[in-house]
């Protein structure tokens, strides 16, 4: 139960900090062999050292998931480095900016879509054949409550995350015959430094009162859900989008 990923190669994108790092730690704590991916080599190094210090097998790969050719070659390298095909892929990497409609420019739009949507095409494309050769695997995609319940200045972000929800469900249908399960997590407000920094104290206090659980989530709580979905425990979940938002989107107001 506590070693659900023993011996399994687990790829986590955006793993250098926040939710991605928490997921890498949780999978590692359950025996997973961790390939930690992040666009920033500088951020990745301390994260991988932290994972290793906890006694986990971990390797870092500095990689921009929007680069299809690089993704393909790095996923091949991961299989060679670990001496085993990838079993678990957690698509957590995203590049996000929040702005009013009028301020969305081509560069922002391209970057958000190429990392947050196309990046998942490329990683899924690269991981699925390894999983199929291995008799199956599990993919967990990070979408957001913003896909269906967008907050302020979220036109681009909600488009990206609605894209993730759609590609999750379509991948679930297409990859099921290869024994690959694909599910998504829709987090609400998670108290990572990056998300907290977006708001002033008054906004944070208001947000918390809107949530039945009355608080922002912790990255570890998303990691616990990711571990469930990635494990054999979730063997009959396919194409599911599981919201973890403390009930934020449950009431009308």
């Amino acid at each position: 139960m506590s070693r659900r990923f023993a011996g399994r190669v687990c790829v986590v994108t955006g793993a250098a900090r926040g939710i991605g790092l928490a997921i890498a730690q949780r999978l590692g704590s359950e025996g997973g062999r961790i390939a930690a991916l992040d666009v920033s080599a500088r951020r990745l190094e301390p994260a991988v050292n932290e994972l290793k210090a906890k006694g986990f097998e971990a390797r870092g790969y500095a990689l921009d998931v929007s680069d299809r050719v690089a993704v393909r070659s790095e996923f091949g390298r991961i299989e060679r480095d670990f001496g085993a095909p990838i079993s678990v892929l957690v698509n957590n990497a995203v590049w996000a900016r929040f702005m009013p409609l009028a301020d969305i420019d081509e560069e922002t739009s391209r970057r958000m879509l190429s990392v947050g949507v196309e990046g998942l095409f490329w990683t899924t494309q690269a991981a699925a054949p390894q999983m199929a050769r291995n008799g199956g695997g599990a993919i967990v995609n990070l979408t957001s409550v913003s896909a269906a319940h967008p907050a302020k200045h979220s036109i681009a972000y909600s488009a990206v995350k609605a894209g993730v929800t759609g590609l999750t469900r379509a991948s679930a249908t297409e990859l099921a015959p290869q024994g690959i399960r694909v599910n998504a997590i829709a987090p609400g407000m998670i108290g990572t430094p990056a998300s907290i920094a977006q708001f002033d104290e008054a906004t944070i206090a208001t947000r918390q009162t809107e949530m039945p659980l009355g608080r922002f989530g912790a990255p570890e709580e998303i990691a616990a859900l990711a571990a469930f979905l990635a494990s054999d425990e979730a063997s009959y979940l396919q194409g599911a989008v599981v919201t973890a938002d403390g009930g934020w989107t449950v009431p009308a107001r």
């Binding site: 249908t173 989530g217 709580e221 616990a224 469930f228 425990e233 979730a234 009959y236 979940l237 396919q238």
Partner: peptide, 26 residues
């Protein structure tokens, strides 16, 4: 799935409908 919802592993999951249906609803 029931054990997950019963446990603190689902501590931020509230008011949710967890489909465990092989994908039929998706």
């Amino acid at each position: 799935a029931v054990a997950f919802l019963a446990s603190d592993d689902s501590s931020y999951v509230d008011g949710q409908l967890l489909s465990v249906d092989g994908g039929v609803s998706s």
